[in-house]
């Protein structure tokens, strides 16, 4: 079990009331990786206030979007929950 911080923005940040949350994640085997989908699932379990928002959110790892099935490293990485963007 590893602790991992996830950055929050915009409506996700407001709902949780914090700019980041800490999740306990179980890595796959000895790889110290998890799937992005698992991170989203854990976010929903720990923070039910995000549940209806999560389906429209994307996860970014080290400033790049990752797909749900992507294996992402738990060490030396930045996780960010990206709600639907509205720039411009």
């Amino acid at each position: 079990m590893l602790k991992k911080n996830v950055l929050l923005f915009a409506s996700a940040k407001e709902r949780v009331g914090s700019t980041e949350v800490s999740l306990e994640l179980t890595a796959e085997g000895e790889t110290q990786t998890v799937t992005a989908g698992y991170v989203m699932e854990r976010l929903g379990m720990e923070y039910p206030c995000l549940l209806d928002l999560l389906p429209s959110c994307r996860l970014a790892v080290n400033c790049e979007y990752v797909s749900e099935a992507s294996l992402v490293p738990l060490v030396d990485s930045e996780f960010a929950l990206i709600p639907p963007v509205s720039g411009g």
């Binding site: 923005f9 409506s11 979007y65 963007v85 509205s86």
Partner: peptide
């Protein structure tokens, strides 16, 4: 794709997140 978010600040003082 650019992670920027906007809130509409209306004349009544309310702030609403704008979603796509």
């Amino acid at each position: 794709d650019v992670p920027v978010w906007k809130q509409d600040l209306d004349v009544n003082g309310a702030a609403n997140w704008i979603h796509p």
